Computed example of a mutant assay.
Amino acid sequence: MKKNDLSRCGKSTLRVFWMVVLMAAIWLPHATGQQQARARWTEKQAASWYAQQRWLVGANFLPSTAINQLEMFRPESFDTATISREFAYAHSLGMNTMRVYLHDLLYLYDREGFFKRLDIVLGLAEKQGIRLLLTIFDSCWDPYPRWGTQPAPRPHVHNSGWVQSPGVQALKDTAGYGRLETYVKDLLRRFGKDKRVLAWDVWNEPDNRNIPSYDQLELPDKTVYVLPLLKKVFEWARAVHPSQPLTSGIWAGSNWSEAHLRPIDKLQLEQSDIITFHSYDQPELFEKKIRWLQRFNRPIICTEYMARPNGSTFESFLPIAKKYRVGMINWGFVAGKSQTIYAWDSWTKTYDAEPELWFHDIFRTDGTPYRNAEVDFIRKMTGH
């Protein structure tokens, strides 16, 4: 073989080598399950998903026998009889979705058991024609969650035992975020294509400072930690390619025009596949918030409302929401250990008996409605 032939042969071999390297770079990530994270849904994708849904109506759900997310799912206190019965109450109102909170400590201390019990809860909901909106992280109430037996309720105090996830110690330990990443990705690998899951609320009220209940225990610069971590949580979730939409609801303030949005509001709105929000306001402001959010041209769900003394009621809010086809998930369902029949001011004001006007919740533990006219109205609105 001539020298020129050898040279041409060498160049040809080199081209083949680099072609193999290039193909491997393209193919290998897909073969190993490390494909590029899915993008945020387009407006068209979000609208297509929403067009397949009935009008979404439901409640934030915690069984009446649990004081918080940990007690709901811990093996010693997992109460399928109560969960099943209370999902049936929801079905009786024509509700089709319930928002359920999870916790990173459930995964840390009992991964297999937690997943098994979550699967059971999803099955119990499905029997009643209900899908769950699962909330992964939450910045509300006690910033120091503890594994083990959960405390008894403080008498007459609203949400006296609810705990944050991640807690303050995990939040400030930036070097330990790998544990949280593993939790999010493993959770969505397991349930990210489960048709019983309506959507994922990746973080509830992430910058809430919990004034006056726990403000003295909070990180003084909480948002400095939460803002970048929230962005990471969206990235971790999308890396697993869930089929359900991701969201994090804006909640603070009374003006959501562009000029008044805070950096964390903008992040939530820019990262969410569908728009979610909270409103415990008067009906006029509730409707104004819907109109502000319509500019994003995405499905809208109100994932928290209904505080009777505030004027946020089923009678005042549901007709407005139905007019705009906004999904509605009220706070509180069956009065129990969370004690949310008492108002937020129970942290500073002493109550010694059941309030005449309940703050949240619809049913007593035996299924008796707090107000018969109220449940009749909900059934009328849902067509049940």
Rank of each mutant, 00 (worst) to 15 (best):
F61I: 12
E270M: 08
P145F: 04
E287L: 03
D352Y: 04
L269Y: 06
Y50L: 06
E43S: 14
D361H: 14
E126L: 06
R117S: 04
Q52Y: 12
P212Y: 05
H156S: 00
M23I: 09
F317W: 05
L62H: 13
Q216D: 14
W200H: 06
R325A: 07
A81G: 03
R15G: 02
I274C: 07
F115T: 05
E126Q: 14
Y50V: 02
S84R: 11
Y342F: 15
E218M: 14
T97W: 02
H384V: 10
W27D: 06
P75L: 05
V100R: 11
Q35H: 10
Q271K: 07
L134C: 13
D281A: 15
F137Y: 15
D79C: 12
E315W: 01
A259I: 00
K380S: 10
T174Y: 05
N372A: 15
L219P: 05
Q150L: 07
L62S: 11
W49V: 08
K127V: 03
R154K: 13
G113H: 08
M98L: 13
W18A: 00
L122S: 03
N4V: 09
D173K: 11
W358K: 10
Q294A: 10
P143E: 01
I275T: 06
P155V: 00
R379T: 04
R190G: 04
P228R: 11
E235K: 11
K337T: 04
R196F: 03
F137S: 03
L124H: 01
